[in-house]
Computed example of a mutant assay.
Amino acid sequence: MGTNIGYARVSATDQNLSLQVAALTAAGCSVIRTEKRSGTTTTGRTELATVLEFLRAGDTLSVTRIDRLARSMGDLQDIVRAIRAKGASLRATEQPIDTSTAAGKAFLDMLGVFAEFETNLRRERQAEGIAQAKAAGVYKGRPPSIQAEQVKTLHTAGTGATAIAEQLGISRASVYRILGAAN
């Protein structure tokens, strides 16, 4: 019998991992790795990479729900393939998922599709909300952090792009972008 390793994740730094950690501890996890990163990609999720690297044959990776592991079907499948390649299995404490069984594998695939669908719906609703707000004149985006008039004034006074960038604490590319837009 291998090691039961837990993985807990929340998306935002102000979210709490304690409920997931408690559930994984109750599920018998001897090691629990946690991180506060978005689940929409595996990029930058160092704790997940560490867990996947550490897994050995007979081990089990436990999560509370599969959306803690991945939000896209592609990432989920990649993670499950990596787990299987190590001879390990995946188990979710709040869902009937255990990749050591055929039914568990099938349920995992179905939940993965729904997790990706949910993410896509959220993105669509967000885009629709932004479009409505823009149409109503409410949403104008982030205010410019660079005062274009300052750049233009300094340039007119004969100050070079590098000096303008240093003086205003911005990049030379920003200075050139503003000056290019003015022409």
Rank of each mutant, 00 (worst) to 15 (best):
T34F: 05
T34M: 09
T34L: 06
T34W: 08
R37E: 08
S38P: 05
S38T: 09
G39P: 08
G39S: 07
G39Q: 09
T41D: 12
T41N: 12
T42D: 07
T42C: 05
T42P: 00
G44W: 07
G44P: 03
R45D: 05
T46V: 04
L48A: 05
V51S: 05
V51M: 06
E53Q: 08
F54L: 02
R56P: 00
A57T: 04
G58D: 13
D59F: 04
S62H: 06
S62G: 06
V63C: 11
V63Q: 10
T64L: 10
R65L: 04
R65C: 10
R65I: 06
D67G: 03
L69G: 00
A70Q: 01
A70C: 02
R71N: 08
S72W: 00
M73P: 01
M73Q: 15
G74C: 00
D75M: 07
D75Q: 05
L76R: 05
V80P: 00
R81E: 14
R81H: 13
A82E: 12
A82I: 03
I83F: 06
I83C: 07
I83W: 04
K86P: 00
G87Q: 03
G87K: 02
A88T: 00
A92Y: 03
T93V: 15
T93Y: 04
T93K: 00
T93C: 09
T93E: 10
E94A: 15
Q95G: 08
P96W: 11
I97D: 06
D98Y: 08
D98N: 15
T99G: 00
T99Q: 03
T101C: 10
T101S: 15
T101Y: 11
A102S: 06
A103T: 14
G104T: 07
G104L: 08
A106Q: 07
L108M: 15
D109E: 13
D109K: 10
M110A: 14
M110I: 14
G112W: 07
G112M: 08
F114I: 13
A115H: 10
E116P: 03
F117K: 13
F117L: 15
F117H: 13
E118A: 10
T119I: 09
T119C: 10
L121I: 14
L121V: 14
R123I: 14
R125M: 06
R125T: 01
R125L: 03
A127N: 13
E128C: 01
A131R: 14
Q132K: 04
Q132C: 06
A133I: 09
K134V: 10
K134G: 03
A135I: 05
A135E: 11
A136F: 00
G137I: 02
V138T: 09
Y139P: 11
G141S: 13
G141A: 14
R142H: 08
R142N: 04
P143H: 06
P143Q: 11
P144S: 15
S145D: 09
I146W: 11
I146K: 10
Q147H: 14
E149W: 04
E149I: 00
E149V: 02
V151H: 09
V151M: 11
T153W: 05
L154D: 10
H155W: 12
H155R: 15
H155V: 05
T156Q: 10
A157P: 04
A157L: 04
G158A: 12
G160K: 13
A163H: 05
I164Q: 09
I164E: 08
A165E: 06
Q167G: 13
Q167R: 15
G169Y: 12
G169Q: 09
S171P: 12
S171I: 12
R172Q: 14
S174K: 07
